[in-house]
Nucleic acid binder design. Structure first.
Length: 904
RNA sequence: GUCGCUGUGGCGAAAUGGCAGACGCAUUGGACUUAAAAUCCAAGGACCUCUGAUAGGGUCGUGUGGGUUCGACUCCCACCAGCGACACCA
């Protein structure tokens, strides 16, 4: 085998690693090693399409990092598994009437085969899927922990429900009252949430599947109906999820995405008493609003309630009642998204009621409008049209009064006049005016003062709000984890409202076999059709019906990183000591599409487990890196029709043409998609160029975090480099595998030493910084240099094999063997660089005149500034340029450059 | 609309205050060969200029305009374009 033939050596080494369990990770980090390293990839959803080239990008990056640190002596935990519950498998099941488990298992087998083809150093013995019964048994167990936990705001901590103090009034009413009191505090609770129900399709739709109140598919009307749902009280943890971002080594961009999603705002709640229609007499009701600008209270000229606000029905006058009723009904058909999306004209209706502004004592009208959301703040706002653009738009449309109460600090005369006359809305901060005792105060001081005043009068208080909502955790689907919850049945055989957890010893609750997965026209989960032997349970003499909702796809991915630590543990979800030894995850790499939801949900579960003493760190993922998206070129012909990439050819001028017609094509860069006919299949790349070339190209394309386009010619380029590296060491003319005759066991020359050691230093640095593209460039320089050397010291060639091994492990193993070693290269010590050997004797220093390079002067390294200056000044070219000019200043950067500043 | 990221040769990119374009692709020239492929060696930002020809020299050049600095791809301000996320959260 004289020539480099990846098709032969790659499967050979993959089999070797598998047979020798080369990458088996011990239960505990080696106490004599250099510490532990837990490196995690975001595990994939095993779709029927197999891997795409985006997967190996992050996987190769983590693999290089792991292989490097193993050679540095760390014990590395590097697992892989599958996130396999979810919709595509279920839809496939509905279409083909086969159990989803069947297609899921086939897809997992295919993914595993493809991943192994790429030579990743996973400990495959730790692999599992979220759909494994032994895995979701513990997902259910964690759900029961959430169910058993309430959040104590005093201690800012989740505690067992048994520790929840029961008020006396509740205790007096008996055990059922206590039970429902507890239920209302659990982190996992049931609520009537509004869902998008489409009667024509017979299913509940996600928000993004609803457009203008109609279903995306089929254009059928969609209704917002309340449906009993499981919710997780993530909002209790909002403040800690926000604050603990400080502990993490994540990019500022991702932290900001998370903190914006949590959306903390501070302001005040203010109570507006409702007046009767003559505007004088208070009715006893009051409307509580939330505002971040309490300093503008004097400018509040009307109130707006969300259509679903509970007071709407109570305060609406008889004249307005028809209009209001109609408006509320229309709003109920819109999703939150529809109500808040786009540049839509605001709409609203007057309720006929008025309220009293508590500081001005003036009556102001109460409106309802769907731009006010029922589930944020108090569901009601005070409108200050002079200082809020939304209120301003609304006020202009319905001719409501605009009263200016803040004056900008810096503004032109014209701007001031426009604000004063109500032609323009000013939403910034400034100085309060026409606001009683607040007048003259800066916005911030005015806020503090008005809150103080309101608190004293009992009319308002400081308040904090979050955009983050509680997590709607149930789905009316088959292919998800069943909830381990039982609903007690009354005498009539119907649920009586009491619920209980399935006893831990009875876990897991497996999915039943269903004959039919199709929707049935009622908003009830498919599990309701399960055989009664599954659906009904008798326990302690009572009859129960199982919960038939299932958990969303996020559930399994919320804690998989813990299970990898002790995947076979049957006593607990994770072995306690092993957890303490391996956590937290030191490096987590995955796509930015999970920046918010997955990472927030997983952090939330982790914090609950932490509060309950099951894990040892407050945060799961210490360092997070998002790989960039890989795009691909796509081609359109003159009419704009898409042309499949395999029908495209480039002519000598670099113009892309249709392979058959010769028509000139336009090139665009876009996401890979079947529609654009520009998908690159990694398995095909492996067959043509080898896994090492694929790995190398994925890293050489550009920085890990950048978005970058795929180019097959680029793959060819790195393959060429591997060929060159091969020929550098191997005698490619020989029949059998043996060293190139220029490789000799001789000492390195001084210059060779310098190349070797600078390369070691650069590659080491670059790997630690995840700067793989430049590390590969350094190795290319190394190969270019030694290709020109007629005698190549064996030690230098061994060094190349070692440096290359994290990137292109198959070829590195083979070269290591050719160089006479019997053991695998995977645990050979990483080479160290000697700064002494990197030293050079003289450097060429650029001499600048007024910032422009005019000459280059050779100087010994370590020369002092005075001598350097003298050398520069004695250079012939410098003398010419300085002829008749006065040197004003000399800037010397030792070893870098000299700049002479002269008078022009 | 708001926020974020990115703008550097024909292309992917490197350099993050100190010689812009490392490394690779594509291109061109040469060596080897009867020839081709493969391989090896070399050239290469644009424009101008000197010369018989080389060597040499100059001006411009990192999206645009300004600023800071002896010196800016790099730092600051404003703007433009592309991509992505969020989008009436009071």
């Amino acid at each position: 085998m004289p020539r480099y033939n990846p098709a032969e050596i790659e499967p050979k080494w993959q089999a070797y690693w598998e047979q020798n369990k080369t990458f088996r990770c011990p239960e505990f980090p080696d106490p004599n090693g250099k510490g532990k390293l837990y490196v995690l990839d975001m595990f994939p959803y095993p779709s029927g399409a197999g891997l795409h080239v985006g997967h190996p990008e992050g996987y190769t990056a983590t693999d290089i990092y792991c292989r490097y640190w193993r050679m540095q002596g760390k014990t590395v935990l590097h697992p892989m598994g599958y996130d396999a519950f979810g919709l595509p498998a279920e839809e496939y099941a509905i279409r083909t009437n086969t159990p989803p488990r069947q297609s899921t298992e086939a897809n997992i087998a295919n993914f595993t085969r493809q991943l192994k083809m790429l030579g990743f150093s996973y400990d495959w013995d730790r692999s599992f899927a979220t759909t494994d019964v032994e895995y979701f048994r513990w997902t259910q167990w964690i759900f029961l922990i959430l169910f058993d936990t309430w959040y104590d705001p005093q201690d800012r901590k989740g505690k067992p429900i048994s520790q929840l103090p029961i008020p006396e009034q509740v205790a007096e009413k008996g055990p059922e009252a206590i039970a429902s009191y507890r239920d209302s505090y659990r982190l996992a609770y049931q609520d009537d949430a509004l869902v998008n129900w489409c009667p024509a399709l017979g299913t509940v739709l996600a928000n993004e599947e609803v457009i203008d109140g109609r279903s995306e598919r089929g254009d059928h009307p969609v209704q917002r109906i309340p449906l009993r749902q499981w919710m997780l009280r993530i909002t209790s943890y909002a403040d800690r999820l926000l604050g603990d971002l400080d502990l993490l080594d994540w990019s500022v961009g991702i932290k900001k995405l998370q903190s914006d999603w949590i959306g903390k705002s501070t302001g005040a709640e203010v109570d507006f008493p409702v007046a009767t229609q003559d505007g004088k007499q208070a009715t006893g009701e009051s409307i509580r609003v939330y505002t971040t600008r309490p300093d503008t209270l004097y400018g509040a000229t009307y109130l707006v309630l969300a259509p679903e606000h509970p007071l709407v029905a109570k305060i609406t006058s008889t004249q307005q009642s028809d209009l209001v009723h109609e408006y509320c009904k229309a709003a109920s058909f819109k999703s939150d998204r529809d109500r808040t999306e786009g540049e839509k004209q605001k709409t609203g209706v007057f309720t006929g009621a008025t309220a009293i502004n508590p500081v001005t004592q003036k009556p102001i009208p109460v409106w309802i409008a769907d731009y006010v959301l029922g589930n944020y703040g108090t569901g009601a706002i005070m409108a200050v049209p002079a200082h809020d653009t939304r209120d301003y738009e609304f006020a202009i449309k319905y001719q409501l009064p605009i009263v200016q109460v803040v004056e900008p600090i810096e503004a032109s005369q014209q701007e001031l006049e426009e604000i004063r006359s109500g032609k323009v809305c000013f939403a910034g901060e400034g100085i309060a005016i026409a606001s009683g005792e607040l007048s003259g105060l800066k916005t911030k001081d005015a806020k503090d003062k008005v809150i103080q005043n309101l608190e004293r009068l009992g009319l308002g208080r400081q308040a904090v709000n979050y955009k983050l909502r509680d997590w709607l955790f149930s789905r009316q689907r088959f292919w998800g984890e069943p909830f381990p919850i039982l609903h007690e049945l009354g005498q009539d055989g119907k649920p009586n409202g009491q619920i209980r957890a399935v006893p831990i010893k009875d876990l897991p609750v497996d999915l039943p076999h269903l004959e039919d997965y199709k929707p049935h026209g009622r908003p009830e989960p498919p599990l309701g059709k399960a055989d009664p032997s599954w659906l009904y349970v008798e326990l302690d003499g009572k009859r129960y019906r199982r919960e038939t909702n299932t958990m969303p796809q996020w559930a399994g991915s919320c804690w998989y990183y813990l299970r990898f630590i002790s995947p076979k543990c049957s006593e607990a979800f994770v072995d306690r000591e092993q957890e303490a030894a391996w956590m937290p995850v030191d490096l987590y790499i995955g796509g930015a599409e999970h920046a918010v939801l997955h990472l927030l949900y997983a952090r939330f579960w982790h914090k609950v487990l932490y509060d309950r003493g099951y894990v040892s760190h407050p945060e799961p993922f210490q360092k997070l890196v998002n790989q960039g998206m890989i795009l691909s070129y796509a081609y359109k012909d003159q009419r704009g029709a898409l042309v499949s990439v395999d029908l495209v050819q480039e002519d000598e001028q670099g113009v892309t043409r249709h392979l058959q017609t010769g028509e000139q094509l336009n090139q665009i860069v876009a996401k890979m998609s079947k529609a654009l006919k520009n998908v690159v299949d990694p398995e095909g790349v492996v067959k043509e160029y080898g896994a090492d070339a694929l790995r190398l190209y994925e890293m050489f394309m550009g920085p890990l975090e950048a978005t970058k386009p795929w180019s097959m010619q680029g793959v060819n380029g790195v393959r060429n480099f591997l060929d060159r590296a091969w020929r550098l060491i191997v005698d490619s003319r020989a029949e059998e595998l043996r060293c190139n005759e220029s490789v000799q066991d001789i000492p390195t020359s001084q210059e060779q030493d310098r190349v070797v050691h600078t390369t070691i230093a650069a590659v080491t640095q670059d790997i630690e910084n995840l700067s793989f593209n430049t590390a590969i460039a350094r190795m290319m320089e190394f190969v270019n240099y030694f290709t020109k050397e007629s005698v190549r010291p064996k030690s230098s060639m061994e060094c190349l094999a070692l440096l290359l091994s994290p990137f292109a492990p198959h070829v590195a193993e083979e070269l290591w063997r050719v160089l006479g070693h019997q053991e695998s290269i995977a645990y050979v010590a990483w080479p160290t660089s000697d700064p002494e050997k990197m030293k050079i004797e003289s450097v060429e220093i650029p001499v600048q005149v007024n910032g422009k390079v005019r000459a280059k002067v050779h100087m010994p390294v370590g020369i002092d500034n005075e001598q350097a200056h003298r050398l520069a000044m004695s250079n012939q070219r410098v003398i010419e340029i300085l002829e008749g000019k006065e040197v004003l200043k000399v800037v010397i950067v030792p070893g870098k450059m000299i700049n002479l500043v002269v008078k022009q």
